[in-house]
């Protein structure tokens, strides 16, 4: 992740992707690019195919036509060994955690290390504990099983596991869904901190307007099988496309926008802590 090749700054390149389930067309020509070290958000109404697109990016599903390149590798023509080495270079945090119920949090986080590094158990436990601490969890959480965790803790533990092998690319599916505003704030900060620390490229699916305004560098709006708009939130707010307008014209959209503008006027203040409390008052 350290040497950047300037020739190919796109970490993910999606071109002309179409996907259909029986008669239902999910994507009809999706094109987008994700650049290195950016925080990229994918938004869209339910059924707009954003989860499907994410699954296609992480090799859980194949598009019907079109090509997807991740870290320079074409996913359409990929052999098993290449797929494995690619999988080791990204981390995925699932919406509901996807932690293994039969393992403790520490074992869950250590599992990728145990499977793929050949390090000894003591080191793996220490490194897993470090990753858990990095995501802001208390050390005693490591000994717990996933069923004993709250929603916010589950997300963090899942994030710690996604980070286990120091991925270059991190996929987050609804990182703040189902969290209370305070935990959601912490997740915002955590995502920014991770990018700053490791230069990660982050792709996330989210509906959280605060997350979009505060954290995302670029946002792509998916609707009717296509990308309706792509750019920073400020750029998107200038567009007239109805699918994009939905994110700005509702009361929530306006509140999050105003919050961002207020912050721009008083830049010294810490960003989303305030934003989220305004969110709560509504």
């Amino acid at each position: 992740m350290q040497n950047q090749s300037p020739a190919n700054p796109a970490v993910i390149e999606i071109s002309k992707v179409t996907t259909r389930f029986a008669d239902h067309v999910v994507h009809s020509g999706v094109d987008l690019k994700v650049h290195r070290a950016e925080i990229f958000a994918l938004v869209g109404g339910s059924g707009s195919g954003k989860s499907t697109l994410l699954r296609e990016m992480i090799l859980l599903q194949r598009p019907d036509t079109g090509s997807i390149k991740v870290l320079g590798v074409d996913l359409n023509h990929i052999a098993d060994p290449a797929a494995l080495s690619l999988r080791l270079r990204w981390g995925v945090m699932f919406q509901h955690g996807g932690l293994f119920g039969s393992l403790t949090v520490n074992e869950n986080v250590g599992l990728p290390l145990r499977e793929h590094t050949g390090l000894n158990g003591a080191w793996i436990n220490e490194i897993a504990a470090w990753k858990i601490a990095m995501t802001g969890l208390e050390p005693e959480v490591g000994e717990k099983y996933p069923v004993e965790l709250s929603g916010g803790m589950l997300k963090r533990a899942s994030l710690a596991r996604a980070l286990a092998l120091d991925p270059e690319l991190l996929f987050l599916d609804e990182p703040t869904a189902g969290l209370d505003p305070e935990s959601a704030d912490d997740v915002d900060q955590l995502i920014l901190k991770l990018r700053e620390m490791f230069g990660l490229t982050i792709v996330m699916i989210t509906h959280d307007l605060d997350l979009l305004w505060q954290v995302a560098d670029r946002v792509a709006v998916l609707a009717e099988g296509k990308v309706q708009g792509i750019g920073s939130m400020a750029e998107l707010s200038q567009l007239d496309n109805p699918a994009v307008r939905k994110f700005f014209d509702g009361p929530r959209g306006r509140a999050a926008h105003e919050q961002k503008q207020n912050e721009a006027q008083t830049p010294a203040k810490n960003s989303s802590g305030i934003a989220r409390s305004a969110w709560k008052q509504k």
């Binding site: 040497n3 390090l119 490194i127 990753k131 092998l165 490791f198």
Partner: peptide, 9 residues
Amino acid sequence: EALDTTGAW
């Protein structure tokens, strides 16, 4: 040439 958290550890 490259260092990640495990390497740093």
